[in-house]
Design a protein around this nucleic acid. Sequence first.
DNA 1: AGGGTGACGATCA
DNA 2: ATGATCGCCACCC
Length: 111
Amino acid sequence: MTARVGKSAADRTRQKILALIRSVPHGKVATYGSIARAAGLRSGARLVARTLHTSIGLPWHRILGAGGEIKLRGDHSIEQRLRLESERVTFRGRRVDMKRHEHKFAKRSPR
DNA sequence: AGGGTGACGATCA
DNA sequence: ATGATCGCCACCC
């Protein structure tokens, strides 16, 4: 029973990342990097990706690489694109039109 | 304890 | 635009 709810710093970071991912609204997208920064990580994009990959029930298709690029490979990238297009997210070549769809996170609470 | 590994990102040739 | 490199963070042997 790995009932992890946030003991270690790593777990708290994970919870924070999960909350941010869940906060991206329908029709909008965010990047691994922006989420990492919103979570207070200097450069934890890879961690965001890992979290996304090891969790379920998240709007995973709304998370993209820098510049709005889909970073998945093969069929998965196709599914992601279809899911995005089904919520009216538009593309410019093979990247999402970030100009129109990038979700801005509120600045980190000036604690 | 140490080293390898990502759904990454920025930078440089 | 493409490929190599280095930095980052947590996880998995």
